[in-house]
Every structure is written in structure tokens, then in C-alpha cells.
Write a protein that binds this DNA or RNA. Sequence first.
DNA 1: GTCTATATAAGGATAGAC
DNA 2: GTCTATCCTTATATAGAC
Lengths: 217, 217
Amino acid sequence: MPIAQRPARKKDIRQENEKLILEAAEKVFAEAGFGGATMQLIADVAGLPKANLHYYFPTKESLYRQVVQNIFQVWLQAADIFDAAPGPAEGIGAYIDAKMEISRRHPAGSKVWASEVMHRAPVIQDYLENTLKDWTDGRMAVIQRWIDAGLMDPINPRHLLYMLWATTQHYADFGHQIETLNNGKPLSDKDWAEAKVSVKEIILKGIGVVPVGKNTG
Amino acid sequence: MPIAQRPARKKDIRQENEKLILEAAEKVFAEAGFGGATMQLIADVAGLPKANLHYYFPTKESLYRQVVQNIFQVWLQAADIFDAAPGPAEGIGAYIDAKMEISRRHPAGSKVWASEVMHRAPVIQDYLENTLKDWTDGRMAVIQRWIDAGLMDPINPRHLLYMLWATTQHYADFGHQIETLNNGKPLSDKDWAEAKVSVKEIILKGIGVVPVGKNTG
DNA sequence: GTCTATATAAGGATAGAC
DNA sequence: GTCTATCCTTATATAGAC
């Protein structure tokens, strides 16, 4: 841990500044939308002059694209849990937990994604058509195998996935509404735990699966 | 009344033009967001000169506010079904059907609402705090009564409501994503029916209720 | 009540000094 | 690699003729 390191600075500065800019951009894009966000505001939040943003990211759109791509990576990581599971109780239960945790820790990212999709995905349509399509098909196949093995009810795997996405992301995308209905206070640890349990209980029971840890048989 | 305006035209013209403008605005706000929408584009879609918009709606924000308020009324109408029902099988089942139908027929409205909430409700915060809060409290009480009467499992009424909103509105707000995953084609009548049935089956079973029409006991 | 032309402001992007 | 000053486009809003 050399304190005053002279060499190899440029790369560090670039990394550091890009990180600052991307974090600020995610926040601003989430709160104002693509059209409502201004490079000036992003620069202010990042604590850098506006011109520096254009040095690291040529256009507003290129910056935005990077933000959306980062979010997508976070989504995909939650998928690993799905594949590692022996059955729906563990796989879907853990997936709900993971997605809820992302909604809690990464709400801005979820909002940017939602906004992008609502506006017909002008920037990341290729991701939807390829990466997301492949991921969805793969997970539908996993669910179908669980159904065929008699581990859960014969529900429609596609609509189950949509329900999982909708329900978990709702806590991020509509976090402001939820907070307002919570008398203006952010959800407490207890509230979040209650939310997770509620979602898991209803969905797992709804597809004919006994939650892990509640299996009394 | 005794004013001698030949044919009472003025009022008709105003009504007609306001309707044109509001429909166009809803579409444009949904697709571009508040910041991305332009008065010029709304005017083009409405088939009117831009200046006319400013005649009927002084500012972009006043037009937007009216659009959001209209959507909110549509949401509230779906609530009536809830109250008229004798129990959760009918009440929640019909509410899901109604909300799914709104998502299908009124997707732009749902998107504008979602966008407004995601951006911390700058325009309709008072609606969230009053009308929506009251509605939510009332419906939670209804659900609690059903639980107390042994008509459904003792789930958390609040999180059940969030799940209902999330799941049904997902089909409007993320319609583009769903369409992309449907190989770029809009959902057919059959697809929508399948979606409704899936949502109802999973949620109703998940809360310990047998769907109406499937009650074999 | 309608519409053209325009004032005024704001934002994205860049040039060029340091 | 950093940042000030500025260009240029676009958008909201209005004035004023018809």
C-alpha cells in the first residue's frame, strides 16, 4: 500500500472519474428520465465540470448506454442462483430474495431499465432480442423440467417469470409510491423482510411448492 | 343560455380539441417521458398547430397533469369490483381481470403513471398521499375482513395489493419487452387469456383461495 | 377561436488555453 | 488530463395578424 504512488496514474484517474460519472448518471437518469436529465446536472452530482463528461463519454447517449448495460449485468448475476438450485423451492425462493435485494440496493438501476423499456428500448433493443431472449428461454426450460419432474404445478413458465420480475422490481420502480403509502418513511429492515416473505409465500404456494424451511413433510 | 350564439358551437369545439390533445399527449408522454416529449410532437399527433395547445393548456406541465389525472380515474374505477364482491375469489379474481384489461386497452396511461411515480411524483404527489392512501387503506381492511372470516390465508394485505398492481401493470409498462420476447409480435387474444389465467391461478392459490369456476368442493 | 412568426431560454457539444 | 467560454440547435411560450 504505497501511499504516494507517482506512476500509473492516468489509468487510475480515468477509472475513478468514469466511476463517479456513471454513478451520478444512473441517479440522474433514474430521477429525471433520459430526456429530463441534463449533462450539467450529472456533472454537478459527479462533482466534475460538464466538459469532462464529454471527454470520457462523447455523447449523452453513450453515457446512458453504459449505464443501462451495467444494470443489465446486475440482473444477469441473479440468474446464477436459478441454475444452481436442485428444485423450485430453492431456485425460485433464492431468485426472489436476490431480486428483492437488488431492488433495495440498486433502485436507480432498476428505474433506468424500466424507463428504457417503457420507451420501447431505443438504446438496448439488441439486448432484449438476444441476451434477454436467450436467458428467458433457458429459464423457462428449467421451470418446465421442474414441472415435468412433479416438483411444482403445471403453470405457464413464461408468465411465472413475468410475475417474478414484476413483483420484485415493483419495490424499486414504485419505491416512491410504496414509501408514500408507508407514511412517507422508507421501508425498515423489518418491512423489507416482511415484503420478501410475503412475495415468496404467495408465489411458492401459488405454484404448488412448499417454501424451504417450512417443509414439515 | 340566452346568449345568442348561433349554434352553440364553441363548447363543442373546445371539447373536441381538448380530447384530441389529451389523447395525443398521453401517447407522446408515454413513449418519450415528460422531458422527452415536445409540444410540437403532441401537436403533430393531434393534428393541430402547436400554438393551439398553448391556447387550451397554458403550459406543458398543465397538459401533463391533466393526462395523469385522467389515468388515475381509470384505476379507481377498477376498484368498484373489489367492494361489490362477497369474497376474495370473486373480488380479487375480478380485480385482476379488470386491471389486466386496462393494461391491454390503456397501456399508455399506465406508462405515464409509472413514469410519474418513478420520478418521485413531482406532479401528483398529493394524489398519492390522499386519494391513493385512502383507497389502499380501505382495500386492506376489506382483505383483512376476508382473512378474519377464514375465506383466505392470513397473508399481509399490503403486500398482496402491491403484488396485484405490479403483476397486472407489468403487462402494460413492460409491454414492449413482453412483445420482444414474443418474437416481436403483439400478444394475441389467446396470449392475453393465458396471461390472465396464469396470474389468477398463481395468486389465488397462493393466498389459499379456490378460483371461481374451479370450485369443485 | 386559429395560426404564423418570433422572442427567449436551455441544453448538448466543442474549441482551445492551461 | 482539466476546464472556461462559446457555438448551435431545439424547445417552450407568446405576440399579433386573421
